[in-house]
Design a protein around this nucleic acid. Sequence first.
DNA 1: CTTTTAATACCGCACGGCGGTATGTATTTT
DNA 2: AAAATACATACCGCCGTGCGGTATTAAAAG
Lengths: 217, 217
Amino acid sequence: MARNKHPEETVNLIVDVALRLFLEKGYERTSIQDIIGQLGGLSKGAIYHHFKSKEDILVAVTDRMTEESNKMLADVRDRAGFTGKEKLKTLFMESVNRPVQDEIFTVAPDLGHNPRLLFSIFRETVEEAAPDYILPIIRQGISDGSIQTDYPEELAELVILAANVWMNPMIFDDSLETSYRKFMVFRQMMQGLGLDIVDDELMTRLQELTAIYQKNR
Amino acid sequence: MARNKHPEETVNLIVDVALRLFLEKGYERTSIQDIIGQLGGLSKGAIYHHFKSKEDILVAVTDRMTEESNKMLADVRDRAGFTGKEKLKTLFMESVNRPVQDEIFTVAPDLGHNPRLLFSIFRETVEEAAPDYILPIIRQGISDGSIQTDYPEELAELVILAANVWMNPMIFDDSLETSYRKFMVFRQMMQGLGLDIVDDELMTRLQELTAIYQKNR
DNA sequence: CTTTTAATACCGCACGGCGGTATGTATTTT
DNA sequence: AAAATACATACCGCCGTGCGGTATTAAAAG
């Protein structure tokens, strides 16, 4: 195959294909050959020119999966004229109101059977989402008086882990009923932590979203 | 090697070796050959006679890792003369008071770099520990009036996940300070859920335990 | 505007090792 | 003595990866 004048396109192509395959068959059961097979003529050498290992591709795939969500998080974090608590609430509302999360949802990935990918997302959540997005919001909430806690870092981690992992329909294959119950417990937990940011409107949307996801199964 | 009249011993040996290697090098970087190498003369045939796959060995290893903990959980669960809430409290106290968790702690495993093993423990927690041990206790608490919730299943899951995963020093490489702060947030969360089962005595022991673990790093 | 040079994008094969299987054999159980 | 069990041995196909080579492009030199 001819050489591409814009190598980033090739990189993107590889990530596209890998993302789809990882979600469909799981990371471990997707071979480099499988990826090559959907690359349209590109070879093994091409892959290992752009990525140093299969693991390296996984990192890129995870970044791709979270980049949209992260953009939204950054946007809310940097908005002016909101208290920390309001931002936290907005953030949950937005994360639930995004248009049925692009292509990813069309395959209804089952991370519950994809250890490597799940682990990768877990890491991302703890090492990036929590400190880079949630924590600053909580800190602001502390200084503007809308949030009270002595442990902002740990609070940030716990909250986003509960939301991104425990309540993630891609990870836990919950029924609609179970999802609703989780939301209720989550709401109570948040209130217990002084964060009454889950209201009825959010609960309703949460259910609608779960229903949509369920249909794609 | 001569045939063993008590094959369970062979099975145990394989699990012993695999457990050690999985903790030391991680599941994925431990090859079947590596295991054979420490079996003292046993061969591949032996392994694949007793286990149908490498994955199958992982399951056995995970069971081994959790069996002691599960025994304790079952014991507390089945005790007479305690309210649900008291049992829950006892359970946390016991889990923290066990003698520096046998051999496992001697290698100070880092599950944060062991995706497969972490995933396996995660599954165990959700699919066995929560429904089989925590849930019955919460149910009892509801009927004896010591615990109030409309969502026992979800509460059980959240509580044990927070304790077994988020606060697990094998998974999160937290400093003593950070661990303490997590405990505080956890305590607050539990109180918010109507479960004030974390008292000062528990907090103290929690810290001592973390300190011991830290030393082994 | 050419020519040279160096860097990059990609090809394709070979290699070591991996998880797994098929088959054989000795020992134990029934 | 037959059947089942507990291993050993030999082997297979594939996988991730490294690498020598080549074509294309961009940058530097003339």
